[in-house]
């Protein structure tokens, strides 16, 4: 028999543990990406001579290179300079920084989408710039950012499997480990795929609905 049902059932608990790690990476990574992305977007917008340029280049560079190679860099290169974390933390930081480059673009377009008149009105009222950003611009920009954030969250959930290459024991790595120790890959890999699908499909349906609700009204 090709598919061994008993074996499949027996590995489910292990796989669920892996899934939980994947979910933790995704939530922490998205939080980091959202915060860092906002920081980058504001830095670029402020047009500080050298700094803004450096940030812009960093964003483009991160978007133009593979996540896997970035993960290798953090995992193998940084320890040589005395910076080392455990695999899980490294994974979260790598994927968070990687996605922050995408999030920065999302924020940028969100900020750009706020009508020019809003800035002018804030200036006319002599609002200090922190107030302008915090109370006028960002709350309006967030409308377009929220659904995109959801999309990237789901994308990150799937991409985090790459971190198995730097020994983060998430869902993919768990499935692989079960496969290599039992010489049966079919059941763990198929179940891992189904678990990914079971989370990401409903989630993307939900985000679609959000997208429609948050669609810009002008």
């Amino acid at each position: 028999m090709i598919w061994d049902n008993n074996f499949a059932v027996s590995v489910i608990p292990l796989l669920l543990e892996g899934l939980w790690v994947t979910i933790k990476i995704t939530l922490l990574g998205t939080t980091l990406a959202a915060a860092l992305g906002l920081f980058f977007a504001i830095l670029r917008r402020l047009a500080i001579p050298v700094l803004s340029l450096v940030v812009s280049f960093f964003v483009v560079f991160v978007r133009g290179t593979p996540l896997l190679v970035q993960a290798y860099c953090a995992f193998f290169v940084l320890p040589a300079y005395g910076i080392s974390f455990d695999a899980f933390t490294t994974g979260v930081v790598v994927i968070g920084v990687n996605y922050s480059a995408y999030m920065a673009e999302v924020y940028r377009s969100g900020i750009q989408g706020v009508p020019k008149g809003q800035w002018e009105a804030a200036t006319a009222l002599s609002l200090p710039s922190v107030r302008t950003w915090g109370r006028i611009i960002l709350p309006q920009a967030v409308r377009t950012v929220v659904p995109m954030l959801g999309n990237y969250l789901i994308q990150m959930f799937k991409d985090s499997a790459v971190l198995s290459a730097i020994t983060v024991v998430e869902l993919m790595a768990t499935a692989q480990a079960i496969g290599s120790s039992s010489f049966r890959y079919l059941e763990p890999l198929t179940l891992a795929a189904l678990l990914f699908l079971a989370v990401s499909y409903p989630a993307s349906r939900l985000v679609n609905r959000l997208e429609r609700r948050y669609a810009p009204q002008h």
């Binding site: 799937k158 790459v162 198995s164 890999l189 198929t190 795929a193 699908l197 993307s204």
Partner: peptide
């Protein structure tokens, strides 16, 4: 479309490489 977008590329690649031999 939904299956291939809903699961990880890496899982798909490993599945084709490691699981398909079982068939």
């Amino acid at each position: 479309i939904e299956v291939f977008r809903g699961t990880s590329l890496l899982v798909q690649m490993f599945w084709l490489f490691f699981a398909l031999p079982f068939f």
